[in-house]
């Protein structure tokens, strides 16, 4: 503390603040860790996001508490007493304190950036499949790859248009379906594209959000690891019925159920299939007409 050249009064205040800050921060961090953060852990990616969100909250709590504590403390102890206007001590700054503040914030920021970048790298690389069709880097702690389905990534194309999503399964002759079914524990490569304007494919429970652009193949990866339903919504303003562009019938099913479902779809959609353009990374829309 000597290097900060604190005067007697500074020490009293700083000591008090430090004790309160540590106590409140510990309480706050413990409380923050009790929360189960969305989007929960229905997929490898969702679990990563959940964990990152928890980490951020743990880091944010002491910062938030520290600043608010300073504000409240100033309001109580550093307020003017009496009616007379008195000038405070003329402190112009304190280089070590400033350097320390900037240094600490830089460390926190760089730490967050490194964590963010490694999480990003692992959650997309974890599912990235090499040319040999081998799933790489399934990180052990996510515990995602226990069950079968270790084949190559399932290729699913998400086709957005005003105001609904359809899905085409490249591995099954490009069959087009109106709901998204995904097999459990199988890495999926989503190819998101649009036929008219920009939409955004948001499967909340799976931790996936990807914009659908006309003429663009936007690739996202997901590995669902819990059975159950999920919701699909559009998350980019796409015109009048944007708020209604939602489907709550997405399903994560077992591989055998999936096989049965997709076979049924291929049979049911066979007529429509003939009319569809052949499967492509993206489809250029017809020239737009003006006015609505």
């Amino acid at each position: 503390m000597g290097m900060f050249r604190l005067e007697g009064q500074d020490r009293v205040h700083a000591g008090r603040l430090a004790v309160i800050w540590v106590i409140l921060s510990v309480i706050g961090i413990v409380a923050a860790l009790q929360i189960h953060y969305p989007p929960y852990d229905n997929s490898v990616q969702g679990a990563d996001q959940s964990k990152t969100m928890a980490l951020m909250t743990v880091l944010a709590v002491p910062i938030f508490i520290g600043v608010v504590l300073m504000l409240v403390y100033s309001a109580i102890f550093f307020r003017r007493r009496g009616l007379e206007l008195v000038d405070g001590p003329p402190m112009l700054g304190n280089t070590p304190v400033q350097v320390a503040w900037i240094g600490i914030s830089a460390v926190v920021v760089l730490f967050l950036a490194v964590v963010g970048i490694t999480t990003l790298a692992s959650s997309s690389a974890a599912q990235a499949v090499g040319a040999a069709g081998r799933a790489i880097g399934q990180s052990g702690e996510t515990g995602s790859s226990t069950a079968g389905g270790q084949g190559p990534e399932l290729q699913v194309q998400v086709v957005a248009q005003q105001w609904y999503f359809t899905y085409r399964y490249a591995d099954y002759g490009g069959v087009e379906t109106t709901h998204l079914y995904l097999p459990l524990n199988r890495p999926v490569e989503l190819h998101v594209t649009s036929l008219d304007i920009i939409h955004s494919f948001w499967a909340y429970q799976l931790g996936v959000k990807a914009d659908a652009n006309p003429g663009v193949d936007n690739v996202f990866h997901v590995t669902p690891d819990k059975l159950g339903g999920f919701q699909v919504r559009c998350a980019e303003l796409c015109g009048i019925w944007h708020g209604h562009m939602a489907d709550s019938d997405g399903r994560v099913v077992s591989q055998s159920d999936f096989d049965a479902w997709i076979a049924q779809q291929q049979k049911d959609e066979a007529d429509i299939q003939k009319a569809l353009p052949s499967y492509a990374p993206y489809y250029f829309p017809e020239p737009l007409t003006k006015g609505s």
Partner: peptide, 17 residues
Amino acid sequence: GIIFLVTLGTLWRARVW
């Protein structure tokens, strides 16, 4: 963060009106 530092530093041991 510097903006917060400067403001909180100004409040330190002040006579806030």
